[in-house]
Design a protein around this nucleic acid. Structure first.
Length: 542
RNA sequence: GCGCCCAUAGUUCAACUGGAUAGAACGUUGGAUUCCGGUUCCAAAGGUUGGAGGUUCAAGUCCUCCUGGGCGCACCA
């Protein structure tokens, strides 16, 4: 509907000069009395033209060439809104469109030919994924789906570092546990990884090698085995919620390919770095940030900033049109340094979109579940999936805007009733399948022949909602807001249940029944497409 | 102390470049259903949008200050 109006105003701007300067915004009013679509543009123009908004609105309406088959009525309301009412017959045209496009309905080719990369999860292999990683993983994957839905070709990328202090500690932790098995009880250091998975890895090494590793360094087989095992575990967990990465980018490769050295050289040549106290500093203050930061420690080891900048350089070199980074809020202070560094090198940093999500609190019976990674009393993502299943995990993590904290209610997540929105949605989808089965037994088919019979209030509301789907998907994708999809789907499912309660299919006249079947299938298709983008299953029976 | 984010109904959250009477779900209370799935539907009650100023024809939304919370302030990542 919005597209039609946009086109209408574009042609009208030939006659009204001032329409050329305004970007028309169309809204779906919350109140039905305000029409199907409304625009506030007359009010916006009022200021720059210094004229009465209602007068401008009248002038605009007089210049619109309206096809009565499409738009039934246009009116001026309130301080100067222009409200459009669509022709019910036009609204039904969405049904054959949906039935025709099926699983592709709602896609757009706006960004066809564009390439994007989405970096997410990016947890180093020091332990199993936590629920915090879960939000990152699900959101990142959904963003990828949304981008694909608008035409982008997208790579999912997982960036990790298997060198450095964290990993050394990991190897040592495993060795401690291994020596414990050999009977050498030593004080397990407080700052080492205490999770049970460390003991499992140590036990596995013992089973395989007996006591022959006693004198091996922690850096060797202990660390390597731990990394391998943990990565397998992480990949397994991600696969359970339908996430598969196209690429795992190892920080190490930046060193091996000389990218770090090269970057350091460039900073030096451009006079963006300097030496002080035996370390190399990046002139971030000069670049508009808080203060200068160390990029190479006095020990000769780079800090995370240098490889991070080098890593993002490779993203530019790989010619992505859009570079998305999904981070937890604990990273909110680190990325500005990286951005400043890249900008100083002349990269178009506006291509980078950093999405910061807030943390997750697990609520069980009204109580927040306390979590500490070191003490290993955190809930792993795997355990959460065991508890509630993949669909609920994916849906709940997508349900809220990433800027707000997420309360994950375990009790609610486990209930299979209307309290749980996932089941409400999946039920609506399954219900259509059930209807189709029943109607078939009654000799009824799906038909788009008599859609003009769909004039009831419930039917009209559903049709209008279906019209919004494509625009909603595009908007959500462009704004990286997957939670709006869940809100849309819940509204659609609600309208469907209402329709179903009030509009019978079996027992009414055949033409009407078959039109209603077509509408039901259209609704089912849209629910399924929305759920697919969210990564949630749409079952035919429950 | 400094930086980023947040504060909306009893609870969890929406509110589309600032728009019309701030919406929904759950919970609560009351009701419907001889039905194509009782995992459904309808209705009611529930709000000074944390507080105080400001900008605007119009502010939950923008600006300033205050209060309360999350995250971060390393030659860790």
């Amino acid at each position: 509907m919005k597209n039609i109006l946009t086109e209408l105003f574009r042609t009208t701007s030939d006659r009204l000069e001032y329409l050329k300067d305004v970007n028309p915004i169309f809204n779906v009013p919350g109140n039905q009395e305000h029409g199907d679509i409304s625009t506030n543009m007359a009010m916006l123009l009022a200021k720059q033209l210094k004229r009465n908004p209602r007068e401008i609105a009248g002038e605009i309406i007089n210049n619109l060439i309206i096809d009565p088959k499409v738009i039934l009525k246009v009116e001026i309301a309130g301080p100067g809104f222009i409200n459009f009412y669509f022709n019910p017959e036009f609204l039904t045209a969405i049904i054959p469109d949906i039935l025709d496009k099926k699983e592709n309905f709602g896609r757009s080719d706006k960004y066809k030919g564009k390439k994007a990369t989405v970096e997410f999860v990016s947890a180093n292999p020091t332990g199993p994924l936590t629920v915090g990683h879960g939000r990152n993983a699900v959101f990142g994957d959904t963003v990828t789906n949304m981008l694909e839905w608008t035409g982008y070709s997208v790579d999912r990328e997982y960036y990790f570092n298997n060198a450095g202090r964290q990993m050394r500690v990991l190897g040592q932790s495993v060795k401690y546990r291994y020596l414990e098995i050999l009977g050498q009880e030593e004080q397990f250091p407080d700052d080492h990884y205490q999770g049970a998975y460390i003991k499992d890895i140590a036990a596995k090494l013992y089973t395989e090698y007996g006591d022959t590793l006693e004198n091996e360094p922690a850096e060797g087989r202990f660390k390597e085995t731990a990394e391998k095992e943990i990565f397998q575990d992480i990949e397994g967990t991600l696969a359970r919620i339908g996430i598969n990465f196209q690429s795992y980018f190892n920080e190490n490769s930046l060193y091996e390919e000389g990218k770090i050295k090269e970057l350091l050289e460039i900073f030096k040549q451009k006079n963006l770095s300097y030496e002080k106290d035996n370390a190399i500093w990046l002139k971030l203050e000069e670049l508009g940030n808080d203060k200068d930061k160390v990029i190479v420690k006095s020990t000769g080891e780079p800090t995370y900033r240098l490889p991070d900048i080098a890593y993002h350089r490779t993203k530019f070199e790989r010619n992505y049109d859009l570079i998305v980074d999904v981070f937890g809020s604990d990273h909110n202070a680190t990325y500005p340094d990286v951005m400043a560094g890249l900008k100083s090198l002349g990269y178009e940093t506006q291509k980078i979109k950093v999405l910061i999500h807030q943390f997750v609190t697990i609520m069980d019976k009204g109580q927040a579940v306390k979590m500490s990674t070191r003490k290993a009393n955190f809930i792993t993502l795997d355990e959460l999936i065991d508890e509630v299943g993949s669909d609920v995990v994916r849906y709940f993590f997508n349900m809220r805007s990433i800027v707000s904290h997420l309360n994950f209610d375990l009790v609610l997540a486990k209930t299979q009733s209307d309290e749980n929105p996932v089941f409400y949605l999946q039920y609506a989808h399954a219900r259509v399948s059930s209807i189709l089965k029943m109607t078939k037994e009654n000799g009824l088919e799906c038909s788009s022949e008599n859609l003009n019979l769909l004039t009831g209030a419930e039917e009209q509301s559903l049709l209008k909602k279906l019209h919004q789907f494509s625009a909603e998907m595009l908007y959500d994708s462009e704004n990286f807001e997957s939670h709006r999809i869940t809100a849309y789907l819940e509204e659609l499912a609600g309208l469907f249940h209402r329709f179903y309660t009030n509009c019978r299919i079996i027992g009414v006249e055949k033409k009407l029944a078959e039109a209603r079947i077509a509408l039901s299938i259209a609704v089912q298709t849209v629910i399924k497409n929305g759920l697919t983008v969210l990564g949630v299953n749409a079952p035919d029976r429950m």
